[in-house]
Nucleic acid binder design. Structure first.
Lengths: 220, 220
DNA sequence: TCATTAAATACATACTAACGGTATGTATAG
DNA sequence: CTATACATACCGTTAGTATGTATTTAATGA
């Protein structure tokens, strides 16, 4: 295969194949050769021309998949003149959460946390970086500033809620058996968040129910 | 090196070396050869005679390190005629937690969650299995039975508290800068737990302070 | 404006070092 | 004599590299 006039297309093809495989088989379970085999005619040399390591491919594929979701959430929050408290509820409303869930559903991480350990670690990391610091904490601080939220430990509350929401309420790595248990978790989280001054709103329960349905439909 | 009369010693040496390396460099970052190189004179054949895979070595090393700690905690809880509420506080008192912390301090897991992803996944898993189901939940249910605890969602509360305690309050994978921030987390956790009917007691704050000191002393 | 050339880029090919694991040999304890 | 505790030598696979080659782009000059 000769040189492509539009190398971005090649990059896109690589990332598409990589994401699918990484999700289906995990990081360690996917070899570079597996990826190459899906890029008909292309060879490993091409892949290593565009990316310098397997890790870089993984991160790029993941970031590319997340980008539109993050963007969408930012847009939701940026627009309008809402109070911090209102934005907080928005963050956990279906329209913010469901797209992300659909991505995860496509990725289908292995139910065994140890086998999905890399994805788990990224979710863990993300719970602090993106979810808490980049998204939840600013909203909480806005709410404190405008008087709509009374929270004495915004940073800690943001971290704890993000962690619970990402690693527990969403049962990515330890699937739940029933919708009821998932709703019980949501209820529990709402109470705990309220204790540190964060009113997540009862929409969380509807959001949770929708998430369950999405996964159920995806044959979880 | 000839045949050893006491093969358990060989096994112990392998596990000691393995634990240290797995903690310092992570699972993927540690090769069987790395382990072998620490067992002067011994070869890979010996290792694979006693263990059938790298994974088995990892699990054995980890279990061996955890065993005395689990045992000790069980002993603390089993003895005496305490109410469930009292036992709950006991679970988060220094004498229950600090030994475990000292183990972790020795192990020194890499600060990057992705590099320590396997350890993280095991902590995650353990937060449900051992910490919640095996330890916290029975105590809560005991407390409900004897009337000392009023908790509407024992299973969910146990899981959430375990997760937060293991993956957030103890900053194994994302070290904290100051003692104050760690204490703020503890305070936050206490409030959140109280919201679902679990009184962890103010001893948690002292426990947390002690944990910080242990790590500080270990040159964290 | 357009051919000519030089340089940068997009790949393919062929290779290496390291890894987890195995097959097999050998000496020693029981 | 047999089972066990190792050592030695090997294998298939993997991530990654070195290098070669064709094609695009940029620079040049008339």
């Amino acid at each position: 295969m000769g040189r492509n006039k539009y190398p971005e297309e090649t990059v896109a093809k690589i990332l598409d194949a990589a994401l699918e495989l990484f999700c289906a088989q995990g990081y360690e379970g996917t070899s570079i050769q597996d990826i190459v085999d899906r890029l008909d005619g292309m060879t490993k040399g091409a892949v290593y021309h565009h990316f310098k390591s397997k890790e870089e491919i993984f991160n790029a594929a993941f970031d590319r998949a997340m980008a539109p979701i993050v963007e969408r959430r930012r847009a939701t929050l940026g627009a309008g003149n809402m109070t911090g408290a209102q934005k907080l509820k928005r963050l956990y409303a279906p329209e913010s959460v469901v797209p992300q869930i659909e991505l995860w559903a496509r990725m289908h991480p292995a139910a065994d946390p140890v086998k999905s350990s890399r994805l788990l670690a990224m979710q863990y990391q993300g719970s602090f970086d993106e979810s808490a610091d980049g998204c939840l904490l600013p909203v909480i601080e806005e709410g404190i500033a405008d008087g709509s939220i009374a929270c004495k430990c915004p940073r800690e509350a943001a971290e704890a809620v993000s962690l619970l929401a990402n690693l527990w309420l969403l049962p990515l790595f330890r699937p739940l058996e029933t919708k009821e248990r998932m709703l019980a978790r949501a209820q529990c989280l709402v109470q705990m968040a309220a204790a540190v001054g964060l009113d997540l709103g009862n929409e969380v329960l509807q959001t949770t129910a929708q998430i369950w349905d999405v996964w159920d439909r995806a044959g979880w």
